[in-house]
Every structure is written in structure tokens, then in C-alpha cells.
Design a protein around this nucleic acid. Structure first.
Lengths: 230, 230
DNA sequence: GTCTATATTTAGATAGAC
DNA sequence: GTCTATCTAAATATAGAC
């Protein structure tokens, strides 16, 4: 087997195992064994566990971020051409790529979703480093796209709303079986369009309600803000 | 040192370590060492790692759940006495106890918050068992209190909204430093009243927006639903 | 690039002395 | 209840043959 092929196979196995058992729940030996290679070979291709995890997460997050940026930039272009953009459209642009990947069949998508879920709210150093490198830039990009709804000065509310939105999305993509269980079977986590049709208005509506509940900032003229209704 | 005292000290150390490094990131030996006892003593008090984790999580979740039930039942009583209850009040009743514990000073509250965050979206067996035992009952209790806002038949939307709300709360209590970082310092995660004043309308407003976006169920008379406005 | 072999640590768990 | 001692399994990591 060619070297590059082996590397790829190790990454695919690692994605599955890290998603299932978490960073510390998996050993390099286990990854090598389930890939069908020797442990020392995994250590030849990646020198340690963290670099395997980085490779896996990079594989997971790059296409999602690419997709998110494309959708956001497309909305920005439409706006420049005069069409009015709704907050719902921006929210959909930032949650849809992840939700779709999470429900892909026959790919590592479900594992990727679980990795994102693990990294996002984990306080550990290795998780913070990865989140900072791979997800902070796209966070800023998304927040910039939402900024005119929040008023230029309101970085605090914008940030909290973004973080609450991202977290809500994690509830939609993590495979705990809890939605089915608590709903008595009426929730179908695999029906992505249905999930998005609830998740998107939840996040966008939540943001609008927060804005409506805040006392208006004195220095910001009303005309400088976009309206928040659909 | 008395036996019960030692047991308690082990639990306190374990809470800190599990919160910091996750279930697989901690060994019994490490817990024992940092408690200042022999490893075999930890194995005398708890027979294995999972039972230590269970003891820690139980310690963490019982007072929070107790507080949540009290607040919800108080609202139900007020409603029986004729006062109209808002969705915001119910949401606050279910997020406030956790957010307050998460920001307590001088207790294990911050660690407890991180444990809840770990358990909630983790697909692993040990996490699912604990979540099922300790958090599903309170989830059903909370959803029952929200039911009249959603219509009796709409278990699906109610469940998704509850899960999105819980996840959004996790974004508010996990200590990743991301809020401060992305906001350029204007977010203060330790200002609990401020965080709640954004989190509560976010969740309640999200739920209202989801309800508003759904086509009305044909069999449910409008009079059977509570109004969803504040 | 892939393998065997091995050095070194650390893990979970138990037996038995006090 | 607390300790020492120890078993067994598994981890990371490296050296060196092919």
C-alpha cells in the first residue's frame, strides 16, 4: 500500500475513534490496530497523538468553513446588489454546512460533527488551540456578516448571540439519541431539512428577541441599524 | 482522617480533574495522588473509575435539579392562582440554577458546569447512562411546564426547542475564554445577571419564533394554546 | 514505508499486613 | 480505613532490520 494511502486510512480511523471516545479515550496503538497497521507506523507518519488529532480536525473543518464562507459572501454580494438580506438567511448560511455534513451517509460526516461538538466547549489546552486556529476566523467572519443587525458598537451582545447560536447547533448535530428518546420518537435527527427548519428560526428569533429586549444604546442612531424583522 | 472525610476529599479532587481533563483524561491514581492518599484507597471507597464519576456527577446535579424543580413548581402554583406565566419565566427557571452554580466562587461550581457540558452532548455509553438517569427526568419536568405554550400534540418541536435551549446554556457556562476573546473583552462571563439577561430572551425568543414559523396544526384549537408573547 | 523488538511509564485492580 | 506490594495490561516512544 502506498504511503499516502496509509496516512489517509489512519486519519479516517482516527476520526471515527476520536469522535466515539474523545481525545484521551483513544490511543495511537488502537488507531493503528484498527487501521490494520503497526503502531510504530502511525508514529512514523504522525509523530504523536496531538498531530493526528490536528490532521483529523483539519480534514473535518476545512470544507465546512469553505462552504460557510461561500454562502456568507454570496449573501453579501446580493446585498451589495440591493436585495435585502434577512437574519434568517445569515443564520442558515452558518449552520447549514455543518448540519448537512453531520447527516451525510457513507462519509465521515457524523464523526466530524462529533469532533466539532467535543472541541467547541472543551476548556483543555489542545482543544483551545485547535478551536482558536480553525474556528475563530470563521466566527469573526460570520459575526461581521451579522454586525449591521446588531449595531456597530454592540460587540458584546453579538458575541454572546453567536456563541449561543453555535451551541444550539451542537444540540442538533450530536448523536446522543436524546431527541428521539425525549420526544417519544417524534423527533427525527436524520431529517436535516426538518431540523434546519426549526434550528434556523430558533437562533435567528433568539437573536431578534435579545435585541428587542435591550435598552437602545444612546449613541447609535436608529437609521444606522438594519431592521431585524424577517 | 475519618473515612467519610476522605471520601469527600476524593470526590472534590475528582470533580476538578474530570472537569479539566474529561473522563478518559484522568486516572484513579492521579485522583488519589492529588487528594494525598494511596491509589488503592480510592479503589477501596469506590470500586472503579466509573463509580467515582457517578458520585461526582450526582453531587453536582442533585442540588441544581432540586432548585429547578422548586422554581418550576412555584411558577405552576402561581399559575393555578390565576397569574399569567410567561415563557421567559419558565426558561429562566430552568437555566438560572445551572448558570448560578457555574459562576459560584470558592465552590466546585465551575467544575460542575464543565461536567454537565461534557455529559450533555457526549455519545459515549457512560455519559448516556448518566444523562439518562440524572437529566432526563428534569428535562421531562421542564418540558411539561412548557407544554401549554407548544400545544399538546407538538412533542417534536417542544423537544427540539428544549434541546436547543439546553445547548445554548452550555455556551454560556463553559469556560473556554472564547467569549472574551471574540468580543475583544466586552463579554464578561462572570457577570451572571448580564449573561442571564441575554441568554433567557435568546432561548424564549427562539422558541416563540419557531412556533410562529410553523404552520398551525389543524386539529388544535387556538383557544387551547397559551399566547406566546411576553 | 513497513515491520519486529524492546525500553520505559503508567494504567486499573487485588491481596494482605496493620 | 489505610498502607505496601504486586499482578496484568496498556500506553508512548525509539532503535534497527528489511
Amino acid at each position: 500500500m502506498a504511503s499516502l494511502e496509509t496516512r489517509e486510512r489512519i486519519i479516517a480511523t482516527a476520526a471515527r475513534l476520536f469522535a466515539q471516545y474523545g481525545y484521551h479515550g483513544v490511543s495511537l496503538r488502537q488507531i493503528a490496530k484498527e487501521t490494520g497497521v503497526q503502531a510504530s507506523l502511525a508514529q512514523y507518519h504522525f509523530k504523536n497523538k496531538e498531530s493526528v488529532f490536528r490532521a483529523v480536525f483539519e480534514r473535518c473543518i476545512l470544507p465546512i468553513n469553505h462552504n460557510r464562507i461561500n454562502k456568507l459572501d454570496q449573501l453579501t454580494r446580493h446585498e451589495a446588489e440591493g436585495r435585502e438580506i434577512s437574519l434568517d438567511e445569515i443564520v442558515r448560511a452558518f449552520v447549514e454546512p455543518t448540519v448537512l455534513v453531520a447527516r451525510e451517509r457513507g462519509t465521515s460526516g457524523a464523526f466530524y460533527a462529533q469532533l466539532i461538538s467535543q472541541i467547541t466547549n472543551d476548556p483543555q489546552e489542545h482543544a483551545r488551540r485547535i478551536s482558536h486556529e480553525f474556528t475563530d476566523p470563521i466566527a469573526r467572519h460570520t459575526m461581521a456578516a451579522m454586525k449591521s443587525f446588531f449595531g456597530e458598537s454592540d460587540q458584546e451582545i453579538l458575541t454572546w448571540c453567536y456563541l449561543f447560536g453555535v451551541s444550539a447547533m451542537l444540540g442538533a448535530i450530536s448523536r446522543t439519541g436524546r431527541a428521539r428518546l425525549l420526544s417519544g420518537g417524534s423527533c427525527d435527527p436524520d431529517d436535516t431539512e426538518r431540523v434546519l427548519s426549526i434550528l434556523v428560526p430558533f437562533i435567528a428569533g433568539g437573536m431578534r428577541a435579545v435585541l428587542a429586549a435591550q435598552p437602545k444604546a444612546p449613541g447609535v442612531a436608529k437609521s444606522k441599524r438594519r431592521q431585524t424583522k424577517k
